[in-house]
Design a protein around this nucleic acid. Sequence first.
DNA 1: ACAAAAGTGTTGGTCGTACACCCATGT
DNA 2: ACATGGGTGTACGACCAACACTTTTGT
Lengths: 229, 229
Amino acid sequence: MIDSYSSEDKVLLAVDCIIFGFDEEDLKILLIKRDFEPEKGKWSLMGGFLKKNENLDEAANRILENLTGINNVYMEQLHSYSKIDRDPAQRTISVAYFALINIQEHNEELIEQYSAQWFSIAEAPELIFDHNSMVKHAISRLRYRTSKEPIGFELLPPKFTMRQLQKLYESILDEKLDKRNFINKINSMDILIKLEEKDMSSSRKGSFLHQFDHEKYEKKKAKGFDFKV
Amino acid sequence: MIDSYSSEDKVLLAVDCIIFGFDEEDLKILLIKRDFEPEKGKWSLMGGFLKKNENLDEAANRILENLTGINNVYMEQLHSYSKIDRDPAQRTISVAYFALINIQEHNEELIEQYSAQWFSIAEAPELIFDHNSMVKHAISRLRYRTSKEPIGFELLPPKFTMRQLQKLYESILDEKLDKRNFINKINSMDILIKLEEKDMSSSRKGSFLHQFDHEKYEKKKAKGFDFKV
DNA sequence: ACAAAAGTGTTGGTCGTACACCCATGT
DNA sequence: ACATGGGTGTACGACCAACACTTTTGT
């Protein structure tokens, strides 16, 4: 007998996504208004159920793509939530993932279709089930991750100014950073390409655009270089 | 209609435990020899299935207690593993937990009953399924956790010498530490009670025993004190 | 007396943090 | 000419890492 597990209980396995974006000022999350029971009409994370022919990472990517139209972005498994009555409809275990996307890139139509909306972290509404604690947990993981590896770049457009980068870090870490110290630290990592091009939208003088140098980053990472901010 | 999930696929949800112990010299893990299919006779982590009336933390505690007879120890959820064919018998998702126990305290009879055995990290055998990567992942999480909070004490008996503590940290971090720097750092945290009593088993001179001061630790933690080693 | 582990402080270097002024440009 | 954000370097203090000798006691 190959299958000796037959008497065990099976459960529904959900995947919920905390989708982070950054809009030049604030760290934001993308929430949907549920149009199905239970808790219809309330705000919630985007979620779905694991299917037979996919693993959890694939499910998370599918769910992200359903809502935003994008794939191939930074995603990370966060934690599994299993309180018995977390979903009143049925026993459901949920595996939370978080994603970092460039807020410009999402597909407007899909967002409308799901009545989805971006919320600043500080202004997000109450969510259903245990989604509030998932979000809290995701923010703390994002802070940790950001302080170890430069994943923050995932939240910016390909070309960005130092000022944008600093504001991004400030909104993730929720503290003001010193301009000079920040630039010194980033420059000392030597993983940015400074372009000739300037962004003129934010000031009269204009500020230089930069690109993330993936190659240099990978090389340094392989050598065990420390990217702590 | 309350239940709108009825058409979704259900899965078996397993919980596997990486059980760490420390025997004065090496960091060890407790493994069992499977006496059931599939992979009967091979080494494996202790595991079980989530039941209807418990959450994942409870399942992990139950599984740990089944094998060791102990409960109420440090446990932490690690990650969920979901590769489609990870278990050849049936689609199974596994949530891994790791536990830190005082290696003296386990119940010998239960261990024998499961043909379980302690292995030094470096000498552990090949494990079934994806259990090897679970262990690798657990070690790296344990290192991180240890460098942030003094959870290492969970692996020691209530009274221990500075030397034991240092050896523990060395085996977790897999590097030699300087005796004076280590003691200075630990002392500066001020979370140990130095006893009058000496342990005479390790040297002629004997070395003072210490206890972890849970109260002081909790107070300091609440104030945001940094316990980095 | 000697072997074996325990215990104990100081110093130099590095890294992080605090801090203020000039520049370029559009209006 | 002035207002607005962009860009740049230094000095001090805190923390970390390296390092060697004396003590105790059982044999």
